[in-house]
Nucleic acid binder design. Sequence first.
DNA 1: ATTATATTTAACCAAATGGTTAAATATAAT
DNA 2: ATTATATTTAACCATTTGGTTAAATATAAT
Lengths: 122, 122
Amino acid sequence: MVKYNERALDATFHALADPTRRAILARLSLGQVSVGELAKPFEMSLPAVSKHLKVLEGAQLITRHRDGRVSRMEFNPDAMMGAVDWITHYKKFWESQLDKLARFLEDTKPTGEDNNGKNTKG
Amino acid sequence: MVKYNERALDATFHALADPTRRAILARLSLGQVSVGELAKPFEMSLPAVSKHLKVLEGAQLITRHRDGRVSRMEFNPDAMMGAVDWITHYKKFWESQLDKLARFLEDTKPTGEDNNGKNTKG
DNA sequence: ATTATATTTAACCAAATGGTTAAATATAAT
DNA sequence: ATTATATTTAACCATTTGGTTAAATATAAT
């Protein structure tokens, strides 16, 4: 009855447990950026950001597209799904909040209009 | 733009990033248990479990009900909602999976029917 | 009052984390 | 070929983490 990939959950939750890394994901969710561009707004060295990227990459929350000497980082939210999936197991314990979430999801469900022509994957 | 409580997210994700702590939550989701009972199945010392409980308590994922010398730990999933809320911000990046989740949530939405013990996932 | 039970705290340790600066690598431009 | 740019690796450091055992605390039972 091993339902979840514990190592993957470790990696995902650990990656998400740092504010810099969450900010990186937020930034990348707006579109691909180079490491240098990505690092600019952060008040830390480039190697520090590089390390964070490695953690995110290890958790498969981002992927790398090398283009010459520039590494363009891309958001890859699949691993987040795993986290949500795990948390959702506890849905019956927060039914009222769930109701709110369900309504929210229903509200924004892709019925053919919500997709802004963006490729959602690959 | 929605402002998230970064410190709370740090605490929540960090708490969830450990397999022992996730197992503790899984156990507590079945009902309140004392610290001793809780610790039994884990191959580690009681103080180690105690520390994990502190982390979970700090993240407000569990609460403590002291009854004499026995501490009954209770699952408190509200903080998880915060994590889901944050992740859900990225919903547009995984629409197909979102659709699956939305259907799942709809399917098990508490509309008066009791879906006790039925795990529709997996 | 003494003893047993439940749990936490203290002191300690190794490994991991998150940061630094300096050097190395790889590619691009001149 | 030389130099500039983008990024990573190496070496280092302080703090945190996750575990240990021994001692302390608090309550219950005899």
